[in-house]
Amino acid sequence: MKEEFYTRGRWQNWINKIKESGFTLQESEEDPSAAVFVYAMDDVVLACLKVIARCEHGTITKEEAISTIDEIREIVSERDDSLGEDATLMLESLNASLSAVFLASQRYIDGGYDQKTPLADMVRKAATAEEAGRMEEALGILSDIGARVIGGEAVPEEAFAELPYCMTAELLDGIDAISAAQVGDDSYKEDDGSEDDGEDA
């Protein structure tokens, strides 16, 4: 039986927690209820990293790994109209950031990405491509950046600081979440599929 790395039930748990949080957008101060979105993102990122680890252990093929990332993307992109306007906007932002995680994961699995250009230069190239309306090019560059982050590199802090608010910046938030997950619980790296806890959030 095919293993499920991420289920609809797991994502629904996060949707329920978002509803329970009573999240609202606040201009004057950061809303503590926003933390649930960070936790949800981390959960999805770790699922993707687990898929990659299984692929590197040879438990699943590259094709199966790429297909599984697509399945996770489909699960988390489903809308829930009962969240309310503020939470829906935040969830859309989360999904935008996660799109970079999915693209980066698949690019890393597939291989053949740019491993030489300095990451700060690549961030600038992605932002320039977006500004010129070449979003497909920007996404390709960001996929390469994310793949290298999965491989252990880090995007320089100044590269984030130089960016205006744009889609490239939002996508880089997702790539930054990969870095954060990798310095946290890294038990997924040794997970070869011999034991599966199967726990939901």
Rank of each mutant, 00 (worst) to 15 (best):
G9S: 05
R10D: 06
W11S: 08
W11V: 09
Q12G: 09
Q12I: 10
N13S: 15
I15E: 00
K17F: 01
K17T: 03
K17L: 05
I18S: 01
E20F: 00
S21V: 01
S21W: 03
G22V: 01
G22L: 02
T24M: 06
L25G: 05
E27D: 14
E27G: 06
S28F: 08
S28I: 09
E29W: 12
E29F: 14
E29N: 11
E30W: 13
E30C: 10
D31M: 09
D31E: 11
D31P: 09
P32E: 07
A34L: 13
A35R: 13
A35L: 14
V36R: 13
V36D: 14
V38W: 13
V38C: 07
V38S: 12
Y39R: 12
Y39A: 13
A40F: 00
D42S: 06
D42G: 07
D42W: 03
D42F: 08
D43N: 03
D43L: 03
D43T: 02
D43Q: 04
V44P: 04
V44S: 02
V44H: 08
V45T: 00
V45F: 03
V45R: 04
V45G: 01
L46Q: 02
A47F: 10
C48I: 07
C48V: 11
L49D: 05
K50S: 14
K50C: 11
V51R: 12
A53C: 04
A53H: 03
A53V: 02
R54G: 01
C55W: 00
C55P: 00
C55E: 00
H57W: 02
H57Q: 00
G58S: 04
T59Y: 08
T59I: 06
I60P: 02
T61P: 10
T61I: 07
T61Q: 09
E63L: 10
E63N: 13
E63R: 15
A65P: 05
A65S: 13
A65W: 07
